[in-house]
Design a protein around this nucleic acid. Sequence first.
DNA 1: ATTACGATCATCT
DNA 2: GATGATCGTAATC
Length: 211
Amino acid sequence: MLANEPLLPREFFLLPPDLVARRLLGARLLRRWNGAVLAGRIVETEAYFGHGDPAAHAAAGCTARNRVLWGEPGHAYVYFIYGLHCCLNVSCEPDGSAGCVLLRALEPLGGVAAMRGLRGLGERAAPHLVASGPGRLCQALAISRAGLNGADLLDPNGELLLAASEAGWVPGEVAVTPRVGISKAADRPLRFFLAGNPCVSGPRGPQLRPA
DNA sequence: ATTACGATCATCT
DNA sequence: GATGATCGTAATC
């Protein structure tokens, strides 16, 4: 059951988004769906700051779309983009600050057949096609704005939550690059991923120094 | 391997 | 009215 998983503590998300993004690598995202549990390891993240970050949605100030960013940390900010995709963020920083972390890719761990189905992939599709990329991640876990935007990811009874990595799991090297797909502040090194993991999306280099 | 483009719509100017 | 934290397909090198 999901309720037995060791969830991340709320304090984990009080830190600035770059630190949270870095530390979220290796953690697991769990989704209760249709009586099954879909699970994946977070292998790629991006940090967006609540202040001084023109690429962040929070730069527009508090609006109807992004208001969850200003609330309690550890909640889901889900938004619709390019007319057909959703992206999932985790709010961080204390109440009143709007930092967040975009979850960009998962390594599938459980419920993989269901995830392939949600993605419209064949049974033989490679794992790295299942949830690598923010839009693919949401499709693979049946995450949409309706229902999950604003959800508390630290509620053991919730449908979507963040669990610690397995006991004994050891993170490998972390790589850092500029963020993907943005036009403003495109030079800041705020994308983090597990070096060498095949489920990472997008460019894998050149890498900057590990944090 | 790399580049280009269309899909499609909520949100903001 | 323009833009966008993307993806899949197609074309070209």
